[in-house]
Each structure stands twice: as structure tokens, then as C-alpha cells.
């Protein structure tokens, strides 16, 4: 069953189309990634789905509630973690969670229990009476996620959850997201970190200039990258001058030099390619030092699908995110 159904969603701002007729479904219990560079429409899509912005055209259903007529009902069932940690600096961790619980109508007798449970689960119990303003970025992010879970939502929207975090905090947060996934929560995640999407998502939609250009599992997307086998070979000495002989021994394969002693061989019959490489090395006494089969990465898939350089993703928002 689908937790979210998006159909022909469009958002225009003063003549600029930020989201251009996107459609996709998110199944119950899956982690669905929206992957794309800055300005691709990820955040605008999320803002429309959580009721912060009204679509210009098109629509969506969240847990069966129509975005145009049932957004208040849908809001009761969703949790949202915006791209910035925007809880109240003046309130303590515990007070922030209790305030959110009150806003979502969590019964009085459950509020304390729920807040305590989340503070423990997110490793913030010892700091529960400390003001949010005194927390590190990682702790702020964790509490922001906890605040989005205080009313026990069925769907969680995470907008760039690890942006600006150091490697350790980002990794701990990814583990947290994986735990929530294991508990059956439906998660919609926007990210521009390719490895993060690969690691966390069951399925990924790639957005470019407001359009969905591909939706598939990470494995499925990688198949777009290159259906040919890729073998990386390193020799003990320079081989660039012998390329003609090597190519003749590898029919149907493409040889690309990475440096004077290292190359990738794409395509061809893998067993004949390996045989040709061994013979070539032996005949010229090159001292074969390494031979690896390379699997295409999500980055390869992204480049192939979008035609964009992966650096457009790395440049975004400054942070490394681990």
C-alpha cells in the first residue's frame, strides 16, 4: 500500500517553475530518497507535501488524505524534520518536546512518558534540562528529529538530515534513521549526499530542475550507469606505449588509461578480457600488480542519468556530512 501518492505536482514562483509536474509513490514502511542538486526542487516538494506551501497545480495524497482538503488530518500523522534545527533555544530539551507534544494534542498523561522515552532513545536524557541553545549541532539535529516523533507519526519527512554535521554525528544520525526504518516508519528523505542515499534508501527519485528523471532502487539506478563489466588493472611499470597490442588482445573492450601504469577495461567477454590481460602482462614482463572488478556506484548512475558532474552535489550547502 502507498503511504504517499504524488500526481503532477507543480510549483511556480513568479514565473519560475521550481517543481515541474512530478509524480511518484512512496510505499508504506520504505525509505524513499529525493536526490538532486541545489535548486532541483527537493525542499519545495517536501514543503508542499507537509502543507507549508500550496501547489500551483497537481496534488498528492498522504496516508489517504488529500493534500488540498485533508492537510490538517494528514499533519496529525506526519512528522517533519526541516533542513535547519529550529526548536526553541530558550527552552530545555524536555520542554521543547513537551511543547511539541501539546501542539499535536498528545494526551497529558502520555506527554512526559513519550518525551522521556525519546530523550533516552536519542541519547539526550542526561542533558534533558539543558537549554536547546547550548547543544552541539549533532545534538540539536537529534532533538529536532525527536520532536518530529513526539506524536508517534506514521510518516517522517527528513530534509537534508546530516547537512553541516561532522562525520561522527552524521554516522550516528544515519544509524538512527536506519533504526526508525526497522521499526516500520515510512521515511521520505531529501539529500544531496549520494552515499547517504545509497546507504539509507529503499528507493530513490532523482530530481533535476524540478523534474523526476528516474525512480528506482539504488541497485536499479546503478544498472543505468553501465551494463558492461569494468575491470581496473595496475602494472608494475609503464604500459602506455603498448596500448595497440593490448587493445588487439581484448576484442570488444574499451581501454581507458588512468595513469601510465593503470587502466580500466570496459566491456568485452569478462573471461576473455582476463585471459588477454594475463597474457599481455606475461609476454611483456610487466609485473601485474593488481586487478579488480569495479561495480558502478550511485555516483556513476547519477552522472549517467543526469549528465551532471557529481561535484554539483559535493559543492552544495558547504558541509561534508560524513
Amino acid at each position: 500500500m502507498n503511504a504517499i501518492e504524488v500526481r503532477g505536482l507543480i510549483k511556480r514562483f513568479d514565473g519560475f517553475t521550481a517543481v515541474d509536474g512530478i509524480s511518484f509513490d512512496v510505499k508504506e514502511g520504505e525509505v524513499f530518497g529525493l536526490l538532486g542538486p541545489n535548486g532541483s526542487g527537493k525542499t519545495t516538494t517536501i514543503r508542499m507535501l507537509v502543507g507549508l506551501s500550496r501547489p500551483t497545480e497537481g496534488g498528492a495524497k498522504i496516508l489517504g488524505f488529500d493534500l488540498s482538503s485533508g492537510i490538517t488530518e494528514a499533519k496529525r500523522k506526519i512528522g517533519v524534520v526541516p533542513d535547519s534545527s529550529n526548536l526553541y533555544d530558550e527552552l530545555s530539551a524536555r520542554e521543547n518536546l513537551l511543547f511539541m507534544a501539546k501542539l499535536y494534542g498528545v494526551p497529558k498523561d502520555l506527554r512526559e512518558e513519550r518525551a522521556e522515552e525519546l530523550l533516552k532513545a536519542f541519547g539526550l536524557y542526561q542533558r534533558r534540562y539543558d537549554r536547546f541553545g547550548t547543544f552541539s549541532r549533532g545534538m540539536k539535529r537529534a532533538l529536532t528529529i525527536a520532536a518530529a516523533l513526539v506524536h508517534d507519526p506514521k510518516v517522517l519527512f527528513l530534509d537534508e538530515p546530516t547537512v553541516g554535521l561532522d562525520v561522527v554525528a552524521a554516522r550516528s544520525l544515519r544509524n538512527l534513521i536506519s533504526d526508525l526504518h526497522r521499526k516500520g516508519l515510512t521515511i521520505i528523505l531529501t539529500t544531496h549526499y549520494l552515499e547517504e542515499a545509497d546507504h539509507l534508501c529503499d528507493r530513490i527519485a532523482i530530481l533535476v530542475k524540478g523534474e523526476v528523471v528516474a525512480v528506482d532502487t539504488p541497485q536499479g539506478l546503478k544498472r543505468y550507469a553501465d551494463e558492461r563489466s569494468v575491470i581496473e588493472v595496475s602494472f608494475g611499470r609503464e604500459v602506455a606505449g603498448l596500448v595497440g597490442d593490448l587493445s588487439a588482445r581484448l576484442p570488444g573492450a574499451e581501454v581507458v588509461f588512468l595513469d601510465e601504469a593503470r587502466m580500466t577495461v570496459r566491456g568485452g567477454d569478462p573471461s576473455r578480457v582476463l585471459e588477454g590481460i594475463f597474457e599481455f602482462s606475461k609476454d611483456h614482463d610487466l609485473g601485474l600488480s593488481a586487478i579488480n572488478s569495479i561495480r558502478p556506484s550511485l555516483e556513476d548512475a547519477f552522472v549517467r542519468i543526469t549528465g551532471l558532474s557529481p561535484t554539483v552535489m559535493a559543492r552544495e550547502k558547504g558541509g561534508k556530512g560524513g
Partner: peptide, 8 residues
């Protein structure tokens, strides 16, 4: 924005 995300 956080307040506007609440069901009100």
C-alpha cells in the same frame, strides 16, 4: 514554520 507544521 514548526508551529505551522502542527495540525492547525
Amino acid at each position: 514554520e514548526r508551529l505551522l507544521l502542527a495540525p492547525v
